[in-house]
Amino acid sequence: MQRFERIYEQHREAVRAYVRRRAPQSWVEDVVEDVFVVCLRRIEDVPREPLPWLYAVARKTLANERRRHARVAPAGRGVAYEPEPVGDAGLAAAFASLSDDDREVLRLVAWEGLSPREAAAVLGCSGVAARVRYHRAKTRLRAALDGAASFRRPEPKGVTE
């Protein structure tokens, strides 16, 4: 129980932010609660570095939530809302043009601050596969940005990985 409390205290805000980046605000508290219910039930399975594991649970919980909403939503009404990059119209357009898989691996690295190896634990793939997916997604985003010439602006600063 102590371990669960520690995990909850240390990571609930990160999990909440993860969910908020992918879902409407109205879903957030329910999804976060579900994630930590799973965490409590499966505390023996939670690895030493719990955050990628918690993100993986949140990812599955969100997928279930989207399916549930898709079933109850009236035909023609969009339910796949997700927050987009803010303050950068060119980037938002390019990002939206990517596949779900590409967007997710890029979010995990750029927004959650995970390494590709950590992202692998969330995506349920090997570290090598995650790295390949990440680099391909990055290349595709770059290409999409280059295609949106009207939105080009001076190059931002880079990051080291």
């Binding site: 990160a14 980046r21 927050p83 990059p85 980037l91 959650e112 601050g113 995970l114 880079g158 990051v159």
Partner: peptide, 22 residues
């Protein structure tokens, strides 16, 4: 070069990270 893309995406994070940064 494409790391610039990640920096740009990170800067456009709609919910800035609350705990990952040291």
């Amino acid at each position: 070069m494409s790391n610039h893309v990640i920096a740009r995406l990170a800067a456009a994070n709609p919910v800035p990270a609350p705990v990952r940064a040291h």
